[in-house]
Nucleic acid binder design. Structure first.
Lengths: 193, 193
DNA sequence: ACAGCCATGTAACTTGTTACATGATTTT
DNA sequence: AAAATCATGTAACAAGTTACATGGCTGT
Protein backbone atom coordinates (compact mmCIF):
# COMPACT_ATOMS: atom_id res chain seq x y z
CA UNK A 1 0.00 0.00 0.00
CA UNK A 2 2.69 2.50 -0.89
CA UNK A 3 0.28 5.02 -2.39
CA UNK A 4 -1.98 4.72 0.58
CA UNK A 5 0.87 5.28 3.00
CA UNK A 6 1.99 8.31 1.01
CA UNK A 7 -1.44 9.87 1.14
CA UNK A 8 -1.50 9.10 4.84
CA UNK A 9 1.81 10.89 5.24
CA UNK A 10 0.44 13.93 3.47
CA UNK A 11 -2.71 13.88 5.55
CA UNK A 12 -0.61 13.63 8.67
CA UNK A 13 0.89 17.00 7.83
CA UNK A 14 -2.47 18.61 7.28
CA UNK A 15 -6.01 17.44 6.52
CA UNK A 16 -7.03 18.07 2.94
CA UNK A 17 -9.20 16.86 0.13
CA UNK A 18 -8.56 14.50 -2.74
CA UNK A 19 -7.42 16.71 -5.56
CA UNK A 20 -5.14 18.63 -3.27
CA UNK A 21 -3.54 15.35 -2.24
CA UNK A 22 -2.85 14.52 -5.84
CA UNK A 23 -1.28 17.90 -6.43
CA UNK A 24 0.91 17.61 -3.36
CA UNK A 25 1.93 14.11 -4.33
CA UNK A 26 2.94 15.11 -7.82
CA UNK A 27 4.69 18.22 -6.57
CA UNK A 28 6.89 16.22 -4.23
CA UNK A 29 7.96 13.86 -6.94
CA UNK A 30 8.74 16.76 -9.20
CA UNK A 31 5.82 15.93 -11.46
CA UNK A 32 7.40 12.75 -12.75
CA UNK A 33 5.24 10.36 -10.80
CA UNK A 34 1.83 10.94 -12.35
CA UNK A 35 -1.08 9.91 -10.20
CA UNK A 36 -4.54 9.56 -11.63
CA UNK A 37 -6.99 11.52 -9.48
CA UNK A 38 -9.38 8.65 -9.51
CA UNK A 39 -6.79 6.57 -7.77
CA UNK A 40 -6.60 9.09 -4.97
CA UNK A 41 -10.29 8.66 -4.29
CA UNK A 42 -10.25 4.89 -4.47
CA UNK A 43 -7.24 4.78 -2.19
CA UNK A 44 -8.87 7.23 0.18
CA UNK A 45 -11.94 4.98 0.30
CA UNK A 46 -9.79 2.01 1.14
CA UNK A 47 -7.97 3.95 3.84
CA UNK A 48 -11.31 4.99 5.29
CA UNK A 49 -12.53 1.40 5.16
CA UNK A 50 -9.50 0.39 7.22
CA UNK A 51 -10.09 3.21 9.68
CA UNK A 52 -6.86 5.01 8.89
CA UNK A 53 -8.52 8.23 7.74
CA UNK A 54 -11.94 9.79 8.18
CA UNK A 55 -13.99 12.63 6.80
CA UNK A 56 -13.55 15.75 8.83
CA UNK A 57 -16.78 16.08 10.79
CA UNK A 58 -16.48 19.71 9.78
CA UNK A 59 -18.84 21.91 7.95
CA UNK A 60 -20.00 23.02 4.58
CA UNK A 61 -19.13 20.90 1.62
CA UNK A 62 -17.99 23.41 -0.96
CA UNK A 63 -17.52 20.33 -3.05
CA UNK A 64 -14.39 19.57 -1.12
CA UNK A 65 -14.46 16.60 1.19
CA UNK A 66 -11.68 17.01 3.70
CA UNK A 67 -10.11 13.90 5.16
CA UNK A 68 -8.00 13.66 8.25
CA UNK A 69 -5.78 10.95 9.60
CA UNK A 70 -7.03 8.93 12.58
CA UNK A 71 -5.08 7.68 15.59
CA UNK A 72 -4.88 4.29 13.94
CA UNK A 73 -3.62 5.91 10.80
CA UNK A 74 -0.90 7.72 12.67
CA UNK A 75 0.15 4.45 14.22
CA UNK A 76 0.33 2.67 10.89
CA UNK A 77 2.26 5.56 9.40
CA UNK A 78 4.74 5.47 12.25
CA UNK A 79 5.25 1.77 11.68
CA UNK A 80 5.71 2.36 7.97
CA UNK A 81 8.48 4.84 8.59
CA UNK A 82 10.17 2.95 11.36
CA UNK A 83 10.07 -0.59 10.10
CA UNK A 84 12.38 -1.21 7.19
CA UNK A 85 10.99 -2.63 4.02
CA UNK A 86 10.88 -6.37 4.21
CA UNK A 87 12.80 -7.64 1.22
CA UNK A 88 10.41 -9.91 -0.63
CA UNK A 89 12.64 -12.92 -0.56
CA UNK A 90 11.51 -14.41 -3.81
CA UNK A 91 12.42 -11.14 -5.39
CA UNK A 92 9.41 -11.26 -7.69
CA UNK A 93 11.53 -9.47 -10.26
CA UNK A 94 10.21 -10.11 -13.73
CA UNK A 95 13.64 -9.94 -15.30
CA UNK A 96 14.93 -12.63 -12.99
CA UNK A 97 12.12 -14.87 -14.11
CA UNK A 98 12.86 -14.06 -17.71
CA UNK A 99 16.46 -15.13 -17.45
CA UNK A 100 15.59 -18.25 -15.52
CA UNK A 101 13.14 -19.20 -18.21
CA UNK A 102 15.52 -18.27 -21.02
CA UNK A 103 18.18 -20.53 -19.60
CA UNK A 104 18.48 -23.65 -21.68
CA UNK A 105 16.54 -22.50 -24.73
CA UNK A 106 17.57 -21.79 -28.22
CA UNK A 107 15.20 -19.49 -30.12
CA UNK A 108 16.35 -16.47 -28.16
CA UNK A 109 19.37 -17.95 -26.45
CA UNK A 110 19.99 -16.66 -22.99
CA UNK A 111 23.02 -14.75 -24.23
CA UNK A 112 20.87 -12.80 -26.64
CA UNK A 113 18.33 -11.98 -23.97
CA UNK A 114 21.07 -10.77 -21.69
CA UNK A 115 22.59 -8.62 -24.40
CA UNK A 116 19.28 -7.03 -25.33
CA UNK A 117 18.53 -6.21 -21.72
CA UNK A 118 22.03 -4.98 -21.18
CA UNK A 119 21.91 -2.65 -24.14
CA UNK A 120 18.57 -1.25 -23.04
CA UNK A 121 19.81 -0.77 -19.49
CA UNK A 122 22.88 1.10 -20.66
CA UNK A 123 20.78 3.38 -22.81
CA UNK A 124 18.55 4.15 -19.87
CA UNK A 125 21.57 4.78 -17.75
CA UNK A 126 22.85 7.31 -20.22
CA UNK A 127 19.52 9.05 -20.33
CA UNK A 128 19.27 9.19 -16.56
CA UNK A 129 22.79 10.48 -16.28
CA UNK A 130 22.06 13.19 -18.80
CA UNK A 131 18.92 14.17 -16.90
CA UNK A 132 20.90 14.34 -13.71
CA UNK A 133 23.64 16.44 -15.23
CA UNK A 134 21.19 18.89 -16.80
CA UNK A 135 18.89 19.78 -13.98
CA UNK A 136 20.73 18.76 -10.88
CA UNK A 137 20.17 22.15 -9.26
CA UNK A 138 16.97 23.82 -8.11
CA UNK A 139 15.05 20.59 -8.84
CA UNK A 140 12.62 18.96 -6.45
CA UNK A 141 14.47 16.84 -3.89
CA UNK A 142 12.02 14.00 -4.35
CA UNK A 143 12.65 13.86 -8.05
CA UNK A 144 16.37 13.71 -7.40
CA UNK A 145 15.89 10.83 -4.97
CA UNK A 146 13.88 9.08 -7.61
CA UNK A 147 16.41 9.74 -10.33
CA UNK A 148 19.26 8.46 -8.18
CA UNK A 149 17.24 5.37 -7.41
CA UNK A 150 16.77 4.69 -11.09
CA UNK A 151 20.45 5.13 -11.72
CA UNK A 152 21.61 2.85 -8.94
CA UNK A 153 19.05 0.21 -9.81
CA UNK A 154 19.93 0.26 -13.46
CA UNK A 155 23.62 0.02 -12.70
CA UNK A 156 22.89 -2.94 -10.45
CA UNK A 157 20.91 -4.51 -13.24
CA UNK A 158 23.81 -4.22 -15.65
CA UNK A 159 26.19 -5.74 -13.17
CA UNK A 160 23.76 -8.51 -12.48
CA UNK A 161 23.35 -9.27 -16.17
CA UNK A 162 27.12 -9.53 -16.47
CA UNK A 163 27.25 -11.86 -13.51
CA UNK A 164 24.52 -14.04 -14.96
CA UNK A 165 26.28 -14.31 -18.24
CA UNK A 166 29.52 -15.22 -16.57
CA UNK A 167 27.81 -17.74 -14.36
CA UNK A 168 26.04 -19.24 -17.31
CA UNK A 169 29.26 -19.47 -19.28
CA UNK A 170 30.92 -21.19 -16.37
CA UNK A 171 28.06 -23.63 -15.92
CA UNK A 172 27.91 -24.43 -19.62
CA UNK A 173 31.38 -25.20 -20.99
CA UNK A 174 32.00 -23.48 -24.32
CA UNK A 175 32.08 -26.74 -26.25
CA UNK A 176 28.49 -27.64 -25.43
CA UNK A 177 27.15 -24.15 -26.01
CA UNK A 178 25.11 -23.26 -29.03
CA UNK A 179 26.44 -20.43 -31.16
CA UNK A 180 24.77 -17.15 -30.27
CA UNK A 181 24.37 -14.04 -32.35
CA UNK A 182 26.33 -11.99 -29.86
CA UNK A 183 28.93 -13.68 -27.76
CA UNK A 184 31.06 -10.62 -27.53
CA UNK A 185 31.17 -8.94 -24.14
CA UNK A 186 30.63 -5.22 -24.09
CA UNK A 187 33.14 -2.98 -22.40
CA UNK A 188 32.63 -2.85 -18.66
CA UNK A 189 33.91 0.70 -18.38
CA UNK A 190 30.61 2.03 -19.67
CA UNK A 191 29.14 1.28 -16.26
CA UNK A 192 31.98 2.07 -13.97
CA UNK A 193 32.40 5.52 -15.43
CA UNK B 1 2.20 -10.83 -16.40
CA UNK B 2 5.51 -12.32 -15.38
CA UNK B 3 3.99 -15.49 -13.96
CA UNK B 4 1.91 -15.94 -17.06
CA UNK B 5 4.91 -15.53 -19.31
CA UNK B 6 6.86 -18.02 -17.26
CA UNK B 7 4.13 -20.62 -17.55
CA UNK B 8 4.01 -19.87 -21.24
CA UNK B 9 7.74 -20.49 -21.48
CA UNK B 10 7.36 -23.83 -19.75
CA UNK B 11 4.46 -24.79 -21.99
CA UNK B 12 6.52 -23.85 -25.00
CA UNK B 13 8.98 -26.55 -24.06
CA UNK B 14 6.30 -29.18 -23.67
CA UNK B 15 2.55 -29.22 -23.08
CA UNK B 16 1.61 -30.17 -19.55
CA UNK B 17 -0.96 -29.77 -16.86
CA UNK B 18 -1.26 -27.38 -13.98
CA UNK B 19 0.40 -29.10 -11.09
CA UNK B 20 3.29 -30.16 -13.26
CA UNK B 21 3.78 -26.53 -14.22
CA UNK B 22 3.99 -25.54 -10.61
CA UNK B 23 6.55 -28.24 -9.90
CA UNK B 24 8.67 -27.22 -12.87
CA UNK B 25 8.45 -23.59 -11.88
CA UNK B 26 9.57 -24.24 -8.35
CA UNK B 27 12.29 -26.60 -9.49
CA UNK B 28 13.83 -23.97 -11.74
CA UNK B 29 13.94 -21.41 -8.99
CA UNK B 30 15.52 -23.92 -6.67
CA UNK B 31 12.38 -24.10 -4.57
CA UNK B 32 12.76 -20.60 -3.22
CA UNK B 33 10.02 -19.02 -5.29
CA UNK B 34 6.93 -20.72 -3.92
CA UNK B 35 3.94 -20.67 -6.22
CA UNK B 36 0.49 -21.50 -4.95
CA UNK B 37 -1.07 -24.13 -7.20
CA UNK B 38 -4.26 -22.18 -7.30
CA UNK B 39 -2.41 -19.34 -8.91
CA UNK B 40 -1.28 -21.63 -11.69
CA UNK B 41 -4.87 -22.40 -12.54
CA UNK B 42 -6.08 -18.83 -12.40
CA UNK B 43 -3.16 -17.74 -14.52
CA UNK B 44 -3.78 -20.55 -16.95
CA UNK B 45 -7.39 -19.40 -17.24
CA UNK B 46 -6.27 -15.89 -18.00
CA UNK B 47 -3.82 -17.12 -20.60
CA UNK B 48 -6.58 -19.19 -22.19
CA UNK B 49 -8.89 -16.20 -22.15
CA UNK B 50 -6.27 -14.24 -24.06
CA UNK B 51 -5.81 -17.07 -26.53
CA UNK B 52 -2.20 -17.73 -25.58
CA UNK B 53 -2.78 -21.32 -24.49
CA UNK B 54 -5.47 -23.90 -25.07
CA UNK B 55 -6.56 -27.27 -23.77
CA UNK B 56 -5.06 -30.05 -25.75
CA UNK B 57 -7.90 -31.37 -27.87
CA UNK B 58 -6.54 -34.72 -26.80
CA UNK B 59 -8.25 -37.52 -25.08
CA UNK B 60 -9.12 -39.04 -21.76
CA UNK B 61 -9.06 -36.80 -18.77
CA UNK B 62 -7.23 -38.79 -16.17
CA UNK B 63 -7.85 -35.77 -14.06
CA UNK B 64 -5.05 -34.01 -15.87
CA UNK B 65 -5.98 -31.22 -18.17
CA UNK B 66 -3.11 -30.69 -20.54
CA UNK B 67 -2.55 -27.23 -21.94
CA UNK B 68 -0.49 -26.30 -24.93
CA UNK B 69 0.79 -23.00 -26.20
CA UNK B 70 -0.89 -21.46 -29.23
CA UNK B 71 0.67 -19.63 -32.16
CA UNK B 72 -0.32 -16.37 -30.53
CA UNK B 73 1.24 -17.54 -27.32
CA UNK B 74 4.49 -18.33 -29.06
CA UNK B 75 4.49 -14.87 -30.58
CA UNK B 76 3.92 -13.19 -27.24
CA UNK B 77 6.62 -15.27 -25.64
CA UNK B 78 9.07 -14.35 -28.37
CA UNK B 79 8.31 -10.70 -27.82
CA UNK B 80 8.76 -11.12 -24.08
CA UNK B 81 12.20 -12.57 -24.55
CA UNK B 82 13.33 -10.22 -27.27
CA UNK B 83 12.02 -6.93 -26.02
CA UNK B 84 13.87 -5.61 -23.02
CA UNK B 85 11.94 -4.73 -19.92
CA UNK B 86 10.61 -1.22 -20.15
CA UNK B 87 11.87 0.56 -17.07
CA UNK B 88 8.78 1.88 -15.33
CA UNK B 89 9.91 5.45 -15.32
CA UNK B 90 8.19 6.48 -12.16
CA UNK B 91 10.04 3.65 -10.52
CA UNK B 92 7.07 2.79 -8.32
CA UNK B 93 9.53 1.78 -5.68
CA UNK B 94 7.91 1.93 -2.28
CA UNK B 95 11.13 2.87 -0.55
CA UNK B 96 11.58 5.86 -2.82
CA UNK B 97 8.14 7.06 -1.85
CA UNK B 98 8.93 6.50 1.77
CA UNK B 99 11.99 8.69 1.67
CA UNK B 100 10.24 11.37 -0.34
CA UNK B 101 7.49 11.47 2.24
CA UNK B 102 9.90 11.32 5.16
CA UNK B 103 11.74 14.34 3.85
CA UNK B 104 10.91 17.38 5.92
CA UNK B 105 9.30 15.66 8.89
CA UNK B 106 10.36 15.30 12.43
CA UNK B 107 8.79 12.32 14.25
CA UNK B 108 10.91 9.87 12.36
CA UNK B 109 13.38 12.25 10.78
CA UNK B 110 14.56 11.25 7.37
CA UNK B 111 17.98 10.43 8.76
CA UNK B 112 16.47 7.86 11.09
CA UNK B 113 14.46 6.28 8.32
CA UNK B 114 17.56 6.05 6.16
CA UNK B 115 19.56 4.48 8.97
CA UNK B 116 16.91 1.88 9.76
CA UNK B 117 16.65 0.91 6.12
CA UNK B 118 20.38 0.87 5.76
CA UNK B 119 20.88 -1.38 8.72
CA UNK B 120 18.24 -3.79 7.47
CA UNK B 121 19.73 -3.81 4.00
CA UNK B 122 23.18 -4.57 5.32
CA UNK B 123 21.86 -7.44 7.38
CA UNK B 124 20.14 -8.87 4.35
CA UNK B 125 23.31 -8.45 2.38
CA UNK B 126 25.22 -10.45 4.93
CA UNK B 127 22.66 -13.19 4.89
CA UNK B 128 22.64 -13.37 1.11
CA UNK B 129 26.40 -13.45 1.01
CA UNK B 130 26.46 -16.27 3.50
CA UNK B 131 23.92 -18.20 1.46
CA UNK B 132 26.00 -17.68 -1.62
CA UNK B 133 29.21 -18.80 0.05
CA UNK B 134 27.61 -21.91 1.52
CA UNK B 135 25.86 -23.47 -1.42
CA UNK B 136 27.42 -21.89 -4.43
CA UNK B 137 28.06 -25.27 -6.04
CA UNK B 138 25.63 -27.89 -7.33
CA UNK B 139 22.74 -25.46 -6.72
CA UNK B 140 20.03 -24.69 -9.24
CA UNK B 141 21.22 -22.07 -11.72
CA UNK B 142 17.94 -20.18 -11.40
CA UNK B 143 18.32 -19.87 -7.67
CA UNK B 144 21.81 -18.52 -8.14
CA UNK B 145 20.54 -15.92 -10.61
CA UNK B 146 17.92 -14.94 -8.07
CA UNK B 147 20.40 -14.77 -5.24
CA UNK B 148 22.78 -12.61 -7.26
CA UNK B 149 19.90 -10.35 -8.14
CA UNK B 150 19.05 -9.89 -4.49
CA UNK B 151 22.66 -9.11 -3.69
CA UNK B 152 23.13 -6.54 -6.43
CA UNK B 153 19.81 -4.90 -5.70
CA UNK B 154 20.48 -4.69 -2.02
CA UNK B 155 23.93 -3.24 -2.60
CA UNK B 156 22.38 -0.68 -4.90
CA UNK B 157 19.86 0.16 -2.23
CA UNK B 158 22.57 0.80 0.33
CA UNK B 159 24.45 3.04 -2.07
CA UNK B 160 21.28 4.87 -2.89
CA UNK B 161 20.47 5.42 0.78
CA UNK B 162 23.91 6.90 1.25
CA UNK B 163 23.42 9.15 -1.73
CA UNK B 164 20.06 10.32 -0.42
CA UNK B 165 21.47 11.13 2.95
CA UNK B 166 24.31 13.06 1.41
CA UNK B 167 21.98 14.90 -0.90
CA UNK B 168 19.67 15.72 1.94
CA UNK B 169 22.54 16.98 4.07
CA UNK B 170 23.70 19.16 1.20
CA UNK B 171 20.21 20.54 0.59
CA UNK B 172 19.65 21.25 4.28
CA UNK B 173 22.60 23.10 5.78
CA UNK B 174 23.59 21.69 9.16
CA UNK B 175 22.48 24.80 11.04
CA UNK B 176 18.86 24.49 9.99
CA UNK B 177 18.68 20.77 10.58
CA UNK B 178 16.86 19.24 13.50
CA UNK B 179 18.95 17.02 15.74
CA UNK B 180 18.46 13.36 14.83
CA UNK B 181 19.02 10.29 16.93
CA UNK B 182 21.66 9.06 14.52
CA UNK B 183 23.64 11.56 12.58
CA UNK B 184 26.68 9.35 12.48
CA UNK B 185 27.44 7.80 9.12
CA UNK B 186 28.16 4.11 9.15
CA UNK B 187 31.34 2.79 7.64
CA UNK B 188 31.13 2.50 3.90
CA UNK B 189 33.52 -0.44 3.76
CA UNK B 190 30.79 -2.78 4.87
CA UNK B 191 29.39 -2.61 1.37
CA UNK B 192 32.47 -2.37 -0.72
CA UNK B 193 33.96 -5.48 0.86
C1' DA C 1 -12.31 -48.32 5.20
C1' DC C 2 -9.26 -44.60 5.85
C1' DA C 3 -5.18 -41.68 5.21
C1' DG C 4 -2.80 -39.26 2.03
C1' DC C 5 -1.47 -37.64 -2.20
C1' DC C 6 -2.62 -36.11 -6.99
C1' DA C 7 -5.07 -32.83 -9.48
C1' DT C 8 -8.32 -29.34 -10.48
C1' DG C 9 -10.80 -25.58 -9.54
C1' DT C 10 -13.24 -21.41 -7.39
C1' DA C 11 -14.42 -17.53 -4.45
C1' DA C 12 -12.53 -13.86 -2.50
C1' DC C 13 -9.53 -10.25 -1.59
C1' DT C 14 -5.63 -6.69 -2.38
C1' DT C 15 -3.34 -3.00 -4.75
C1' DG C 16 -2.78 -0.55 -8.79
C1' DT C 17 -4.83 1.59 -12.58
C1' DT C 18 -7.81 3.77 -16.20
C1' DA C 19 -11.86 5.74 -18.36
C1' DC C 20 -15.77 7.89 -17.77
C1' DA C 21 -19.71 10.53 -15.54
C1' DT C 22 -21.33 14.27 -12.81
C1' DG C 23 -21.93 18.72 -10.86
C1' DA C 24 -20.19 23.33 -9.32
C1' DT C 25 -17.79 27.34 -10.06
C1' DT C 26 -15.07 30.49 -12.72
C1' DT C 27 -13.46 32.66 -16.82
C1' DT C 28 -14.05 34.46 -21.42
C1' DA D 1 -23.91 31.21 -22.90
C1' DA D 2 -20.01 28.43 -23.80
C1' DA D 3 -15.59 26.73 -22.28
C1' DA D 4 -12.46 25.65 -18.84
C1' DT D 5 -11.25 24.22 -14.43
C1' DC D 6 -12.22 22.31 -9.87
C1' DA D 7 -13.70 18.45 -7.48
C1' DT D 8 -15.71 14.09 -6.57
C1' DG D 9 -16.78 9.76 -7.57
C1' DT D 10 -17.73 4.98 -9.83
C1' DA D 11 -17.34 0.92 -12.73
C1' DA D 12 -14.24 -1.98 -14.39
C1' DC D 13 -10.21 -4.38 -15.17
C1' DA D 14 -5.32 -6.55 -14.39
C1' DA D 15 -2.27 -9.33 -11.70
C1' DG D 16 -1.00 -11.36 -7.59
C1' DT D 17 -2.34 -14.15 -3.90
C1' DT D 18 -4.69 -17.24 -0.46
C1' DA D 19 -7.95 -20.43 1.49
C1' DC D 20 -10.90 -23.71 0.69
C1' DA D 21 -13.70 -27.42 -1.77
C1' DT D 22 -13.90 -31.38 -4.57
C1' DG D 23 -12.96 -35.80 -6.54
C1' DG D 24 -10.00 -39.66 -7.85
C1' DC D 25 -6.55 -42.94 -7.01
C1' DT D 26 -3.20 -45.60 -4.00
C1' DG D 27 -1.38 -47.96 -0.20
C1' DT D 28 -2.13 -49.88 4.30
Amino acid sequence: MSIGMSLLALLDEKPTFGLQLRNEFEARTGGVWPLNVGQVYTTLDRLARDGLVELESAPGSEGQRIYEITAGGRQRLKAWFEQPMKQVVPSRDELVLKLIMAEGRRAPAIGDVVQAERRAALELLQEYTRLKRDESDEAELGWLFLLDSLIFQTEARVRWLDACEARFARATPAASRLPSKTTRRTDRSEVTS
